Amino acid sequence: MKIEVWSDFVCPFCYIGKRRLEQALAQFPHREDVEVVFRSFELDPNAKKETPLTIHEIIAQKYGISLEDAKRANDDIGRQAEAVGLTFRFETMKPTNTFDAHRLAQYAKEKGKLHDVVEQLFFAYFTESKRISDREVLLAIAEAAGLDRKETEEVLNDGRYAEEVRKDEAEAAKFGVRGVPFFILNRKYAISGAQPVEVFRRALEKVWEEEQQASPMRLLAGEGGMCADGSCSID
């Protein structure tokens, strides 16, 4: 079974959804036969690498709500993160552009280090409050994952893997993906949003049982927490 996950490294529900999928896989008896591949998706391709605004201020401006309401919304997301063992530090988070982070992930995929780099990029942004567009941050993540620092620096400097990022994003558009996380199982079934662990577990069982059947892609679950158009749902 192959699960393709479109996500962005500054999307809180993408990190939560990643962890919920992992917890579901831990309960799945055929987990050794499941391949998970992370695909690139930028919530805001025009995002600046640095902004004077906090994530609370960005949310408040985006939705036209008070700063207090934005903080409450982020607190709720933080509690969802805690429930799956994650720590989100909204007060010190550094909103940024993620294009170079996605290029690094594409390079890591080629080198067999995709999962290590993806996890570290999420952790760096949400827990360590690092600016994941910063070159030194990316190089440190690459080195920690076992990638060659000098080669990684060359990759980041000369713009390599930009085409791969754009290809993933074009494929997402072809599938009608408007928000992330978005999970496609065996190119037949789709799950939209950071669904509960039980939903992922049932989906794994269903796809495993029906994987030999030819059928069009069907949405197995929707309306979960997700991010779209440069922002995340706060209801």
Score class of each variant (00 low, 15 high):
A194P: 04
N186H: 09
S192Q: 11
K167M: 13
I184K: 14
S192Y: 07
D168G: 12
I191Y: 02
G193A: 03
I191P: 00
D168S: 11
R187Y: 08
F183V: 02
L185W: 01
I191C: 01
V180I: 13
A194Y: 03
N186E: 15
F175M: 12
A170G: 14
E164L: 12
N186K: 09
A172D: 12
R187A: 13
D168V: 06
A194G: 10
V180E: 05
E163Y: 04
L185N: 00
F183E: 01
R187K: 15
K167N: 09
E169T: 09
A173P: 05
Q195N: 00
Q195G: 05
G193D: 04
E171T: 06
N186M: 07
K167L: 13
V180G: 08
S192A: 07
V177D: 10
A170F: 07
E169P: 06
Q195Y: 04
R187F: 05
Q195P: 02
E163L: 13
E171D: 06
E163N: 06
R166Q: 14
V165D: 11
F183Y: 15
G193V: 01
G176A: 08
K188A: 03
G193P: 00
Y189T: 02
F182Q: 06
E171M: 06
P181E: 10
F183D: 00
Q195V: 00
K174A: 14
A172V: 08
F183N: 02
I184Q: 11
A173W: 11
V180F: 06
A194I: 03
E169G: 05
G176S: 09
V180K: 10
Q195E: 08
G179I: 00
V165F: 05
V177K: 15
E163H: 12
F175L: 15
P196S: 12
A170Q: 15
A173L: 14
A172H: 11
V180A: 09
V177Q: 14
K188H: 03
S192W: 09
E164Q: 15
A194W: 02
K174P: 01
A173I: 04
K188Q: 10
P181D: 14
E163C: 03
P196Y: 07
R166N: 12
A173K: 15
A190Q: 03
Q195L: 01
G193N: 08
D168E: 13
G176P: 06
K188V: 04
L185G: 02
F182G: 00
A170T: 11
Y189P: 01
I191G: 00
N186D: 15
V177S: 11
R166V: 03
P181K: 11
I191V: 12
V180N: 10
R178H: 14
V180R: 10
A172P: 01
P181A: 14
R178P: 01
A190M: 07
S192V: 11
A190C: 02
A172Q: 07
F182R: 05
L185T: 01
Q195W: 06
V180T: 13
N186W: 04
L185I: 12
K167Y: 05
R178C: 07
E171W: 05
A190T: 01
P196Q: 14
A190P: 02
P196F: 09
K174M: 08
F182I: 01
F183W: 13
I191M: 03
V165R: 10
K174S: 14
